[in-house]
């Protein structure tokens, strides 16, 4: 939850990984801005009788792809909500261990989703799922999503290594 407030001063993993993950999230943000612009255009267009065809499905697809691209960033800056009250008095090693547990779960989740959604993409392609009005093939959206899960795995691995370091140093990361 604290991630809403502070962006600086949080552990951001190793340089190259952090940079790629941040850039990927910002690309997702740019996509979100594009959806914003398209929606504004749709409202203005409707006023003058030029509605944007397929605005609903473009919004759905664009926002979904953007949201997936944010996941690696959330892991990197550890902004996923945790309830800290029970463990705030625990020693640094315990905290580092619990944090490591979280990173492991994130890593396994990322790998599982990468595998499952790859199959999902194949299904979408095989059965030729497409959107109603613009007839955009849905599997196309799965490509950036798979990249997002690959990056989530990398991101989780990087926080995991960080936790291992802290565990061996007996230090805490935040």
């Amino acid at each position: 939850m604290a991630g809403m407030l502070e962006q600086e001063g949080r552990p951001e993993g190793t340089g190259a990984v952090a940079r790629i993950v941040v850039i990927w999230a910002l690309l997702g943000g740019a996509l979100l801005l594009a959806v914003v612009v398209m929606n504004v255009a749709s409202v203005l267009g409707t006023l003058v009788g030029w509605p944007v065809p397929g605005d609903f499905e473009m919004t759905e697809m664009g926002v979904a792809v953007a949201a997936f691209s944010f996941l690696p960033y959330c892991q990197l800056i550890r902004s996923n909500v945790t309830a800290d009250i029970f463990t705030q008095n625990a020693g640094p090693r315990t905290q580092a261990f619990l944090s490591l547990l979280g990173s492991v779960i994130a890593l396994l989740f990322a790998l599982l989703m990468l595998w499952r959604m790859y199959d999902g993409m194949i299904d979408q392609k095989t059965y030729a799922y497409e959107t109603s009005i613009l007839q955009i093939p849905v599997w196309l959206a799965f490509i950036p999503i798979l990249v997002s899960f690959a990056l989530l795995a990398v991101s989780a691995l990087s926080t995991l290594l960080q936790d291992v370091r802290h565990l061996s140093n007996g230090a805490i990361h935040d």
Partner: peptide
């Protein structure tokens, strides 16, 4: 529109389909 064929009906009738 109800379905994609419905969208085509609406276009054919000279109206504007909205999803």
């Amino acid at each position: 529109i109800p379905t994609r064929t419905g969208a085509w009906v609406i276009e054919a009738l000279g109206a504007t389909p909205v999803a």
